[in-house]
Computed example of a mutant assay.
Amino acid sequence: MSTMTAPKDELVKLAESRMKVAIAENTWTDRQKLALTCRILFEGGHDSGLAGQITCRAEAPGTYYTQRLGLGFDEIRAQNLLLVDEDLNVLDGGGMANPANRFHSWLYRARPDVNCIIHTHPLHIAALSTLEVPLVVSHMDLCPLYGDVAFLEKWPGVPVGNEEGEIIAEAIGDKKAILLSHHGQLIAGATIEEACVLAMLIERAAKMQLLAMAAGEIKPIPENLAREAHDWISKPKRHSAAFDYYSRRVLGRHNDCLL
């Protein structure tokens, strides 16, 4: 079949149909995918001591998996993850969850579409957050974030109270991400794979923005083309393929995370 004269919309549909067949689904459990995410983000510069939380919904309503307070992202394994309820009571595992996980409970309550939350303080996001300016998306690779990043301009303090949970849940609205001034970033993903890929992307976006701001004025990209790119790149199969690639990259050094 010749495609050399086919219009763009037909080529997009053809590529999507081929992806559904050509890209296989991974077979890791949610615990393993969450542990892989911790190692991927560690290698991607998202670690900041013990700061940051990564969670995903568990089987029972109102419960989720998260890492144990006291362990860094590079120490997380499938077996040392905690199962907690929305009050952060540990239902399975040893130790305690990070008290700042409380705002995850508020976001899960507000967003039934969210199944994985990643909150981290990577260097370039943290640096950008001190300027109290929104994230600017003006490059093709960053378009999965186009129109999907909220901004909380005023820092409400450490997110261990219910007030912070309400503020952050309201500020992010229905978007996939939020830049938190003087703090960090948060991703609200439909899947673990999507959340991990967007977390890697938002740190790259902040780094790119800081470099561009230092060189001159950032020019906007056309909205219609940006939204087209957003929808094209933001396919579950593409997120899955990217997550699998990131996983292959880290498993050579972090194969203990699956245990």
Rank of each mutant, 00 (worst) to 15 (best):
M140K: 04
S138I: 00
L186G: 13
N80V: 11
M208I: 02
D113P: 05
P7H: 04
E194W: 01
K8E: 08
G157N: 04
N98M: 12
G173A: 10
I221S: 07
A60E: 15
R31W: 04
R253V: 07
R248I: 04
S138Y: 03
C257N: 12
G165A: 00
D113R: 10
S129D: 14
E132M: 14
E193F: 02
R248T: 07
K176W: 00
L152Y: 05
G70L: 13
L82A: 06
L135I: 07
A6D: 15
L41P: 15
I221E: 08
L225I: 05
D92S: 10
P222L: 05
R238I: 07
I168M: 06
P122D: 07
A6P: 01
M213T: 11
E43T: 08
H239G: 00
K8V: 10
N26F: 05
E163D: 14
S129H: 13
T120I: 06
R253F: 09
G44D: 13
D174T: 13
F243I: 09
E170S: 15
A242Q: 11
K20W: 00
T3V: 14
D85I: 00
L152Q: 11
C116L: 04
A242C: 11
Q209I: 02
R39N: 12
M200W: 10
E16K: 03
Q32H: 08
V158D: 05
L34W: 04
A127Y: 07
L179I: 15
E193A: 12
T27C: 09
C56Y: 02
L259Q: 14
G49V: 08
N115D: 12
A58T: 11
Y246F: 14
D231M: 06
L225R: 07
N26P: 14
E194N: 09
H104R: 02
D30G: 03
V90P: 01
L179S: 11
R227Y: 10
C196D: 13
P159F: 00
V84F: 04
D92G: 03
C257Y: 10
N98C: 14
A60H: 15
V137F: 01
L142I: 01
L180D: 13
F73K: 15
M1I: 07
A199Y: 04
D244A: 09
W106V: 00
L11P: 12
F151Q: 04
G216L: 06
G62A: 01
L142T: 06
H183A: 05
